[in-house]
Amino acid sequence: MGGTEILLVNLLNHLAEKGCDVTLLLPNPSEKDVLLKRVSGKVPVKYLFPIELKGFKKLFYKNLLVFFPRLYTRLVGFEEKDYDLLVCFKDCFHSIMFSRMKLSKILWIQNQPFPRDYTSHSLKEWFGYSLNRFQIQRMNRSFDKFDQIICVSEACRDGYINIYHHGVQKRELRVLYNALDLSGIEKKAEEYIEKSDFAGLKFIIVIRLSYEKTVDRVIYAADKLRAEGYEFRVTILGDGMEFENLQKLIVDYKLENWITMLGRVDNPFPYMKSADWFLCPSSRESFALTLIESITLGTPVVTTKCGGPEDVVGQGKYGILTENSTDGVYTGMKKVMDDPSLLPYFLSKKEECLSRFNYKEWLAEVDSILGV
């Protein structure tokens, strides 16, 4: 349940309403398919595998995909003759499989390209890193075989050029900011939730709890701010592999009364609206659509310089931009608590900020790209 997935669901429904014969292809069914019920019944859903692969079988098929993509395609039974156009809506290892096909094909770069650290301390680590490096290189090279490449932010485009092509632009890369249909979120934000009677400043984080989101930065920053006498509360919405680690860290630092983790919430908008500031502590983000949602609900943003968010807040014109570090998160939180005038100032910038992310214009651009 991420911004890219929500955007895809909206696009699929739009294409279905326009009478397009569109199929959604996913790797496998999942218990976490919370968005699938929102997909139009006019859109058939197909899977490469009937169940989620695990263990050796998962490793086997991943390497088969990377090193023998044509054999992989035959084994999973994908027939390219059934389609006229292929859209890989998120750059991933399956881009390798699709890049070999003779279909017209379009790739969206939704992930923020970044340099990887392959420092190894043992032979086992060296072997694992060497294999991963080669897998990543194969994936990156496959991107250039797509007919069109769409980057969701200037940072994504710059990362593509710098990381994948060593600073040399070898082909046209189109930048198209993501945009969401925001028409219904004001109403959803009115849903009743139990609100805290805390009178101080309240921060909200809505994020997937994975390693690169570096939510632990907030815990370290909160501990430091508490020691300095600041009164505030942080609510974290989201689930992921880091959930238990973060929960333990909160307990270790005795911050249970300061930071609350609510897990995955189907409707995060009432929480976002009731907060004072939205906090994005990530080490990298391709775009971060939740920032736009928060600004729509009248909750301005404090974000690290981690890629796409710089474009969302206009390099600091429409929100607080901090260094990409724990100190940066600490500085951003401290700044808005020290200066109450920042809240009304950035609220006044709301309409100007949102005018750059018009959903109807985005759909029209995508229709043009797809030739619809």
Rank of each mutant, 00 (worst) to 15 (best):
F49E: 04
V206P: 05
L289Q: 13
W108Q: 02
T326G: 09
R264P: 00
I236Q: 01
L24K: 01
D181P: 06
L123P: 02
F143I: 00
T303M: 03
E52Y: 11
F127D: 00
E5T: 00
S30C: 04
V43Q: 07
G328T: 06
C280V: 14
P29G: 07
S286Q: 10
R38H: 13
P69S: 10
Y359W: 13
H14V: 06
T235Y: 09
I236K: 00
H121A: 01
A222E: 01
F49L: 04
G332T: 04
D311P: 06
V265A: 02
N132W: 14
W258M: 10
P344L: 03
P113C: 10
S282E: 04
N324M: 03
N178I: 02
E365Y: 01
S95Y: 06
I250V: 15
I161N: 02
R38D: 12
F68I: 00
Q169N: 05
L180H: 12
F269G: 01
K202F: 00
I109R: 11
G167F: 04
F93S: 14
E154S: 14
D311R: 04
V34G: 04
D266I: 07
P340C: 03
K350G: 08
R157Q: 14
T322N: 04
V34I: 13
E17D: 15
L85G: 03
L354S: 04
R138C: 13
Q137H: 12
E190D: 13
L225G: 10
N10E: 15
L279I: 11
L123F: 12
M337W: 00
K213Y: 08
D223G: 15
L182A: 09
S196F: 03
I51V: 15
K188R: 15
L321I: 09
A221S: 11
D84F: 07
I295N: 02
E191L: 03
L246P: 05
K195P: 05
F198Y: 13
G3T: 10
G307P: 09
Q315P: 00
S183T: 14
R284C: 11
I292R: 03
E191M: 06
N358W: 05
D338E: 12
K37S: 12
K202Q: 10
L237P: 02
P50T: 06
T303K: 01
L343W: 09
R38P: 00
V76F: 05
M101F: 04
P29D: 05
K54A: 13
M101W: 08
I161A: 03
G371M: 11
L35G: 11
S30Q: 05
V22M: 11
K349L: 11
N245H: 11
E351A: 13
V76K: 01
S122Q: 02
F134Q: 11
E31C: 12
L370V: 09
G371H: 08
F243P: 02
